[in-house]
Design a protein around this nucleic acid. Structure first.
Lengths: 114, 114
DNA sequence: TTGTTATTTGCATGTTCACGCATATATCGT
DNA sequence: ACGATATATGCGTGAACATGCAAATAACAA
């Protein structure tokens, strides 16, 4: 009986840790989403100039968006001469998304024992 | 050779459809995230008043946040007398998250044949 | 009907944020 | 050294957004 109350709380806490606002904040902008989609569909890494072609905004804006994605852990940057090559951290992202889905399932399993 | 160019494009398109900005926009606010976490940890549905306790803002704000979550398809509302009971669309959400993860994996598989 | 409770919505305010432009920094080529 | 290229950043502006308060709507109770 005490478990019926304590378990959902633990579950909620786990879920709250998984649902990092930083992650979703990084993905809530349409330009950043198209950057992520472009990077995902690329075998090679991409530069700021490359990515500027896909989204219809200025260099500087793309650079700023990439900074946000980098700080959220979604992309990695590698400086190579005067250009910076960006790549998507696909494994981390897929793992995070599946972890959230699993946490949600765990919550539902605990709260609907009937 | 043409496939090496066309496949990633298809993959990118699929991914772009999956990465609905509306979904992430709904989840990029910390209050909404805590609402989702609270709903996930609940066996029963919750009213606006219930959810107001968890987040430290006014009734009206919670009501607005729930509207955004509802329009994003994350929660469902059922009017019952003078109160409205909200519940998380857990199945839809987990399915969407896993679909995105799968689409990302598919992209990576296509772009890294080595 | 009158008052009370639950929720939504209009309004005003302060904050966050994306964007372009110009500038700064770093690297390359000549 | 000098100019060109790639990226990052400071600044100002306009739009989007979250919030509280008050009013509107709806349903219940007496």
């Amino acid at each position: 009986m005490t478990e019926a109350n304590s378990l959902p709380l633990i579950c909620q806490q786990t879920l709250a840790e998984e649902l990092r606002p930083e992650l979703f904040k990084a993905l809530c902008d349409p330009v950043r989403v198209s950057i992520v989609a472009t990077l995902a569909a690329r075998a090679e890494t991409a530069t700021v100039s490359d990515l500027t072609s896909c989204c219809g905004i200025d260099f500087s804006g793309v650079s700023r968006h990439l900074k946000i994605l980098r700080e959220a852990g979604l992309v990695s940057a590698t400086k190579n001469g005067r250009e910076v090559r960006y790549q998507l951290n696909t494994d981390d992202l897929t793992a995070t998304l599946r972890a959230i889905a699993n946490a949600l399932d765990a919550c539902r399993a605990e709260t609907t024992p009937k």
